[in-house]
């Protein structure tokens, strides 16, 4: 990442991701259009109750007996609010709320959930990471493990860490989730990307998180 992008990320006034986090704060405190409960009415002040939460996600979900990521946790909470409209993946509302919740963990070291029931899902995520896919037959590992720091044409290959999401990408001219980034990498190698929220994505996220630990959460980060 260039020095100017890093500076933009560090300065909250310049960081365009802070706008989304601000929007998320408003949503956190607002009643849904149907007049039901706000997030705050259950969880109180996010700066206290959500501190460190994003650093632990994905986590084990007792209801589905599977890992769940932060966005799907927020969607599940939202779905329980009477009168609240659905919050689709990548919607402005969901990205903003995740940015706001993520911001409460900024600086906290990524801490994978040690629940042993997650281990098989994490292993599947690793297998997905290491398997070549698409017409170009490339694995995530080929670029992000073996060739991080190298140049793919003009692009510097990063280590592929998830700790800044959701983040602002200059190329997108907007905010996006980790799954949006993963879809970009998949379509780049001409592979079929699963739909948003698919188990494959959550398992990949789980592996990426253990691979990134203990890097600190940087949400909302800025990328080229």
């Amino acid at each position: 990442m260039s020095a100017s992008t890093q500076a933009m990320q560090r300065d909250d006034v310049q960081n365009p991701g802070m706008l989304a986090a601000g929007q998320g704060e408003a949503l956190w405190n607002a009643q849904p259009p149907g007049g039901g409960q706000s997030c705050a009415s259950c969880h109180g002040d996010a700066t206290a109750s959500m501190k460190g939460v994003a650093a632990r996600y994905p986590a084990f979900d007792e209801a589905t007996r599977r890992p769940i990521d932060l966005q799907d946790r927020i969607r599940a909470c939202n779905a329980r609010r009477p009168g609240a409209p659905d919050m689709p993946h990548e919607s402005e509302e969901l990205v903003a709320l995740s940015a706001y919740v993520g911001l409460q963990s900024r600086g906290t070291p990524t801490a994978p959930d040690p629940d042993p029931r997650l281990a098989p899902f994490r292993a599947r995520g690793q297998a997905l990471f290491e398997r070549p896919i698409g017409q170009l037959n490339l694995s995530c590992a080929a670029c992000h493990d073996a060739r991080a720091g190298g140049r793919l044409a003009g692009a510097l290959i990063p280590q592929g860490h998830p700790n800044g999401y959701p983040l602002y990408r200059l190329e997108w001219q907007g905010m996006g989730s980790l799954q949006r980034r993963l879809r970009n990498c998949m379509t780049g190698v001409r592979a079929e990307a699963p739909p948003f929220g698919a188990p494959d994505f959550v398992e990949l996220e789980l592996y990426l998180q253990s691979r990134a630990a203990p890097l600190a959460v940087e949400t909302p980060a800025v990328r080229p």
């Binding site: 896919i133 698409g134 017409q135 037959n137 379509t187 079929e192």
Partner: peptide, 9 residues
């Protein structure tokens, strides 16, 4: 020997 190739390819 390829996996998960996008439909258009």
């Amino acid at each position: 020997g390829l996996h998960r190739v996008a439909p258009e390819f």
